Simulated scan of single mutants.
Amino acid sequence: MPRPALPTAPRPALPTVPHSVLHARITEWFQREARDLPWRGGCSAWGVLVSEIMLQQTPVIRVQPVWEEWLQRWPTPAEFAAAAPADVLRAWGRLGYPRRALRLHAAAAEIVEKHNGAVPDNYDELLELPGVGTYTAAAVAAFAFGRRTTVVDTNIRRVHARLVIGQALPAPALTAAEMALAAQLLPRDTGESVLWNAAAMELGALICTARSPKCNDCPVLDKCAWIAAGQPEPSYIPKGQPWAGTDRQVRGAVMAVLRAASSPVHADLLWDAEAAALHTEVSKELGKLHALNTHAPQLERALAGLLTDGLATMSEAGYQLPN
Rank of each mutant, 00 (worst) to 15 (best):
R211K: 15
E192F: 09
L181I: 06
P187C: 10
T209M: 11
I207K: 01
S212Y: 08
A200D: 09
A210T: 11
M201E: 00
N216M: 08
E178F: 06
G204Q: 11
G191N: 13
P213S: 15
N197G: 00
C215L: 08
E202F: 04
A176V: 07
G191Q: 13
N216R: 05
T175F: 01
A182W: 07
S193T: 02
T209G: 09
L206A: 07
P213L: 15
M179S: 12
A210G: 08
D189Y: 14
L181G: 05
L195S: 05
L206D: 03
T175P: 00
P187F: 07
R211H: 14
C208F: 05
G191C: 04
S212C: 08
L174Y: 00
T175G: 00
N197H: 03
A176E: 07
A176D: 03
A210S: 12
A210D: 07
E192Q: 15
L181M: 11
V194G: 01
A183G: 13
T209N: 10
M201C: 06
R188C: 13
E178H: 10
N197C: 03
R188A: 15
T190N: 11
A199Q: 14
E202W: 12
T175E: 13
V194N: 03
A176L: 08
L185T: 05
A205V: 03
E178M: 12
